[in-house]
Design a protein around this nucleic acid. Structure first.
Length: 644
RNA sequence: GGUCCCGUAGCUCAGCUGGAUAGAGCAGCUGACUUCUAAUCAGCAGGCCACAGGUUCGAAUCCUGUCGGGAUCACCA
């Protein structure tokens, strides 16, 4: 039983003894005491006022006396306006510290014997990873660590979208314009080479489209469309909105060509043009058909380009320090799920229209009807996801699955989970969509086709560069081996980046300011690392001393109690964070703990403490905090250097 | 239009299972390195917690509505 529960239990008994009233344990509101008052934990006595027929202050006083007498962990108490502040005995804290300060695994929960699968990253293979993937990857990796710490066995998977029109665009552009260029010849990272041709395809397509817009056919199509009053209104509204946006950002409205026909060609007609008129579009679609037909040359090109992309991805994953246990490829899974549809039809969960298409009616769950199989019998995205879920369950038997996917797919996953539930799948109740908000840039939304993305590799390079500059300025590690220096610089740079992204609640949309992301002071990863480095430095010095400090420590300083309270709360925080899959709580915890430690470190001497007892205590406290910080940051995928 | 998410300091974010005077960081201004690493610490300044109702002894937190921002609602993935 932890101290919070002991207090709650004591209050329940106290209320019963003193007032003859029965309250349940979860009716006892308990929180950590605010800094400005003396105490570790605070009991709110307002809810008992009616039961006891007394004023909160009186109750607090009487309960305080009772607890001090009956619960030996409680040393003293004070009452402020109905709040009962309890001081936990120094003995309790010292004993707690004894029990854990040498445990580097403090925070790890015992094995549950349950398996969880986590799917994350899940990129397309037509271009390199960007900032959005980084948020996904970091959230995924951190979720894996959290679940493991909570005692689950975790399987890490990703599903790679290696087929479809997007990769065909890259392939086609490479075929048409590359003259056999390879990553080696061009001297660029292999996934960036593929991305280069994807962008080139878009560029050429835009040129082609622009020409067509000025052709007779283009002019005519627009003329016809704008005859409809409503269409024109929409277009004008778009122009207005865009102008307003541009003005707010201080962009030059004149260069943006914000006219009604731009709206039409950009927002309305582009897909139709691509599908019906564009020669490039046509060629890409033909390539997709050849791929589906299994044409050997097309497949060979497809394999080559995909391999380039995988090589590049692997390098990026390695830099970020993440791994996968199994990779699924859509080229293998895109036909899956038809069995599931058959099963659903047989069960009467799905229904069929006259044209042969299969559907499910989810209107009673406020989710509308959903297509599961096209009338020609081919799969859609949903079909595929049903099949993959099934396949993964067969592969690993995990009754819980976590999908790390952006929040634009909230609806999709709501539907997917509802369907699996109705099919009565054994894992249906363990499905979780870890939904995260989009990453915005100060300049606006990221669009890969318009080149406004932040590339993952560039970003990592930038943050490492910044770490290097900072490190060289300080010269704290300049006497180390070059390789060791590099390792430290990498850990600092990555800490800055990872912490910056993970400290924000996943479901919130976040603004990514490149300048702030490379900050290494204040509420940042390196700040937390620095607290650890200070601890390690003290430990190294202490280890050199002839005899270990020992002796009793009588009265804890309030900052020491606060630190112990934080460390004490850590394991249950890990459990909650794992249950809610929210790494931000861990990031904020690590920051708060580091902040308090920095303050403690500044205000009190450890090695030159007043007494041997105080010294021994503070060394242990430091070691405990060191372990907690290291374990906590590892949950975020952040390493802690010995020196920095 | 339906559904879902978000709105807290100039900026980026905590706090949200209801509790005391709403917290950090950045940016701005002051100060502290002969001392265990100053990637640190201390201080100043900065708030109708979008708005309006409701529930409650008590609301940033729960409920309803309004406004603002975003996502989504394909025989695309």
């Amino acid at each position: 039983m932890n101290i919070g529960e002991i207090i709650q239990q004591g209050v329940v008994e106290g209320v019963k003894r003193l007032y003859g009233a029965v309250v349940s344990i979860d009716q006892v509101a308990i929180s950590t005491t605010r800094k400005e008052f003396e105490g570790d934990y605070t009991v709110v006595t307002f809810p008992f006022a009616r039961l006891a027929g007394k004023k909160p202050d009186e109750i607090a006083q009487e309960l305080g006396e009772y607890l001090q007498r009956e619960v030996h962990e409680i040393a003293r108490f004070n009452v402020v306006k109905g709040f009962l502040n309890l001081v936990v005995s120094d003995h309790f804290w010292v004993r707690f510290l004894e029990s854990m300060y040498q445990n580097p695994q403090y925070g790890q929960h015992p094995a549950k014997g349950e398996k969880v699968m986590v799917e994350y990253s899940s990129p397309n293979t037509n271009k390199p990873l960007h900032l959005g993937h980084i948020r996904n990857i970091l959230l995924g990796w951190s979720s894996v660590q959290l679940l493991q710490a909570a005692g689950y066995e975790v399987v890490k998977v990703q599903i790679v979208n290696d087929r479809g029109i997007a990769i065909c665009k890259s392939m086609l552009a490479w075929q048409l314009f590359a003259n056999g260029e390879t990553p080696e010849k061009a001297g660029i990272k292999s996934d960036h080479l593929v991305g280069k041709y994807y962008v080139l395809f878009e560029k050429r397509f835009q040129e082609e489209y622009k020409n067509w817009q000025q052709s007779e056919a283009g002019v005519q199509v627009y003329a016809q469309w704008q005859q409809n009053e409503k269409n024109l209104q929409k277009a004008n509204k778009w122009v207005e909105d865009e102008q307003k946006k541009a003005a707010e950002k201080g962009n030059d409205v004149a260069v943006l060509e914000l006219t009604p026909d731009r709206y039409f060609f950009k927002e309305v007609y582009k897909n139709t043009y691509f599908n019906e008129y564009s020669s490039l579009g046509k060629a890409a679609k033909e390539m997709l058909l050849r791929w589906e037909a299994g044409d050997p040359d097309t497949l060979a090109l497809w394999r080559q380009m995909n391999n380039w992309v995988y090589q590049g991805f692997d390098a990026t994953y390695a830099k970020l320090g993440v791994t996968f246990d199994k990779i699924y490829y859509e080229s293998n899974t895109y036909l899956l799920g038809k069995d599931t549809v058959d099963k659903g039809l047989a069960q009467g969960v799905f229904y069929q229209k006259e044209d042969g298409s299969a559907w499910i009616d989810l209107t009673d769950a406020k989710l509308d009807h959903k297509l599961l199989l096209r009338s020609d019998g081919t799969s859609v995205y949903m079909t595929q996801d049903l099949g993959t879920a099934q396949m993964r369950y067969q592969d690993f038997g995990a009754k819980r699955m976590v999908y790390v996917v952006g929040d634009e797919q909230n609806y999709h996953f709501q539907v997917l989970f509802e369907i699996l539930k109705r099919l009565g799948e054994p894992y249906a109740d363990g499905l979780f969509h870890l939904s995260y908000g989009m990453v915005d840039l100060p300049t606006g939304k990221m669009k890969s086709r318009e080149g406004t993305v932040v590339d993952a590799d560039d970003l990592i390079e930038e943050v490492i560069r910044e770490a290097r500059v900072n490190s060289e300025e300080r010269a704290n590690i300049s006497d180390l081996e070059k390789a060791e220096q590099e390792q430290i610089i990498w850990s600092i740079g990555l800490a800055a980046l990872k912490f910056f992204i993970l400290k924000v609640q996943p479901k919130k949309r976040m603004l990514f300011d490149p300048k702030e992301s490379v900050d290494m002071q204040g509420q940042t990863g390196p700040y937390v690392q620095n607290a650890f480095v200070r601890i390690r430095s003290v430990m190294r010095k202490a280890a050199q001393e002839p005899q270990a400090a020992s002796g009793n420590y009588e009265t804890l300083e309030s900052i020491e109690r606060e630190l112990l309270g934080q460390v004490y709360a850590f394991p249950s925080l890990v459990a909650t964070a794992a249950e809610e899959l929210d790494p931000s709580t861990i990031a904020n915890f690590c920051y708060d703990l580091a902040k308090n430690y920095h303050r403690f470190y500044h205000d009190y001497s450890i090695l030159n403490a007043e007494t041997e007892g105080a010294k021994a205590f503070r060394l242990r406290l430091s070691e405990a905090i060191g372990h907690t910080l290291q374990f906590g940051m590892a949950l975020l995928g952040i390493e802690m250097p010995e020196k920095m």
